[in-house]
Computed example of a mutant assay.
Amino acid sequence: MIESRNSIPRWVSLIYRYGQMYIGDHLKHFEIGRGQHIFLNALYKEDGLTQEELADYLKIDKGTTAKALKKLEEQGYILRNVSERDKRCNEVFLTEKARGIKEDVRKVLTDWRERLTFGMSDEEKDMALVILEKMGHNAAHFAEEEVDL
């Protein structure tokens, strides 16, 4: 049976896919893949995180994280170094090349957010954020509950 057009998961999925297409298309001239910008953005907030910290923060499995970071390293956007604190971990650092495109990456993300909320009042934007945060907390809670089974 085809899902109703009023389904919340359908709209969340649709918005996510459109966002990935928009961001990917606007960053492709930097040779940044569709799922890689989130790693750069996380490192723009806190450079030097370990691969594990990045995976946990972004809620992305370690294998996908390793592949994305390998590609970013090959493109010259990051460096991975063995941690002095824990030799089993790699710390991830931005290169000058990555720092040089920070404003470009942030602008694409800001432009997408502005397009997504076009025509919405500040009150509607605040309400949407509150609702999405509640949904995110619910998703995290129930996902963790399933893991504990």
Rank of each mutant, 00 (worst) to 15 (best):
R80F: 02
K97M: 13
K134P: 07
E133H: 03
V108S: 02
K87S: 14
L109V: 03
D86P: 06
D104E: 05
F93Y: 09
K102Q: 11
V82Y: 03
F142I: 14
V105W: 03
A143K: 05
L132K: 01
G76S: 09
H141Y: 12
V105C: 01
W112S: 01
R99E: 01
G136K: 10
K125L: 08
M135R: 15
K71I: 09
K102S: 10
L129A: 14
M135D: 13
E74H: 01
R99D: 00
H141R: 08
L109T: 04
R106A: 14
Y77H: 05
K97Q: 09
I101G: 05
H137E: 11
K134Y: 15
L72T: 02
R85Q: 08
A128E: 07
E103P: 06
R113M: 06
M135L: 13
H137I: 05
E123Y: 01
E91N: 10
D126P: 08
A128Q: 02
E74T: 10
F93G: 09
S121K: 06
N90Q: 13
A140V: 09
Q75G: 05
R85T: 02
T95Q: 05
G119A: 04
T95R: 11
T110R: 14
F118G: 02
K71L: 02
Q75A: 07
G136H: 07
L79G: 04
G76M: 04
G76N: 04
V105E: 02
Y77W: 08
